[in-house]
C-alpha cells in the first residue's frame, strides 16, 4: 500500500467524511472510494458489487472477487449540554469510539475556565444553537446541568428531531418533575419514555467518573442496537 493512501485516510477521517478503502488482493494495490468518485479500470468491472457493499456498509472480500472493502463510517454526533465535571470524563471514555462531541453550555464560567480536548465547545443557550447544528436521527443528546432552563429546551429539540439517544442526568425525583414539564409542554408519553432518565446503565457508582462510564456504556449499547 502506498503511504499516500494512508495520508488520505487520515485526512478524510479528520474531515468526518464517509468513505471506503478498496484493496485488490491479487496485486496489493489500494484505492479510496466514495459516492460518485471514479474507480480504477481494474475495479470498475465490479462497480455494482462495490457500490452494493458500500451502501450496506459491509466489510470483507466482495463475493467471487479478490477485492477487499473496508468502510469508514461517519462518526456519531453527540451533543452534551453542560460543561460540567462529568463531561470531562465522557470525553476521556469516548476516545477511539468514533464519536463527534459538541458541548453546549450558556454559562461562560464553565466553558471558558475549563480545558476540554478535541471537542467543540459552544458558549450559548441550547435553543439558540441547536437549530444551527446539523443534527438528525443519527445524533445523541446528553443533558448534564439538571437545570430546567438549560436542559429542557435541548430535550424538546432532541425529541422533535428524533435523536436515537436522549439521556438526562438527575435523580428519579428530578426526572419525574422533568417528565411532567415535558408533558405539560405537549410531548406524548411515548416521546417522554424514550428519554433515558436517570441516565446511564446501573453500575452502582456515584463518582463523576463512574457516572460518565455508565453513560458511555448506555450510549454504546444504543449505538449497537441501531446496527442490528
Amino acid at each position: 500500500m502506498k503511504i499516500e493512501i494512508l495520508q488520505e485516510i487520515v485526512k478524510k477521517k479528520s474531515s468526518k467524511k464517509r468513505f471506503a478503502v478498496l484493496k485488490n488482493l491479487t496485486n496489493g494495490k489500494s484505492e479510496l472510494f466514495e459516492v460518485g468518485s471514479p474507480l480504477s479500470d481494474e475495479l470498475n468491472v465490479h462497480k455494482k458489487d462495490i457500490e452494493n457493499y458500500y451502501n450496506l456498509q459491509k466489510n470483507g472480500i466482495i463475493n467471487e472477487t479478490n477485492i477487499f472493502i473496508e468502510n469508514y463510517t461517519k462518526p456519531i454526533e453527540v451533543i452534551i449540554v453542560g460543561a460540567v465535571h462529568i463531561a470531562q470524563y465522557l470525553i476521556d471514555f469516548s476516545k477511539n469510539l468514533n464519536l463527534m462531541i459538541t458541548i453546549i453550555d450558556p454559562r461562560e464560567y464553565f466553558t471558558k475556565k475549563q480545558t476540554f480536548k478535541n471537542v467543540k465547545i459552544i458558549n450559548e443557550w441550547p435553543e439558540k444553537i441547536l437549530e444551527q447544528l446539523q443534527s438528525n436521527n443519527n445524533s445523541a443528546l446528553i443533558t448534564l446541568t439538571h437545570d430546567p432552563k438549560i436542559d429542557d429546551p435541548a430535550l424538546q429539540f432532541a425529541l422533535k428531531n428524533k435523536f436515537f439517544y436522549i439521556g438526562a442526568l438527575g435523580s428519579k425525583k428530578t426526572h419525574e418533575k422533568r417528565c411532567q414539564r415535558l408533558k405539560d409542554s405537549g410531548h406524548t408519553k411515548e416521546q417522554i419514555d424514550s428519554i433515558h432518565g436517570p441516565i446511564g446503565l446501573k453500575l452502582g457508582g456515584k463518582s463523576a467518573t463512574e457516572i460518565a462510564l455508565s453513560i458511555i456504556a448506555q450510549l454504546v449499547l444504543e449505538i449497537n442496537k441501531l446496527k442490528i
Binding site: 503511504i3 494512508l6 477521517k13 469508514y72
Partner: peptide, 18 residues
C-alpha cells in the same frame, strides 16, 4: 461500532515511515 484505533494506527505508520 467502528473499529477503535484505526486513526492512531494509521498515523503511527506514517510517522514510522517518516
Amino acid at each position: 461500532m467502528e473499529n477503535l484505533h484505526e486513526l492512531e494506527i494509521t498515523e503511527k505508520a506514517i510517522s514510522w515511515i517518516k
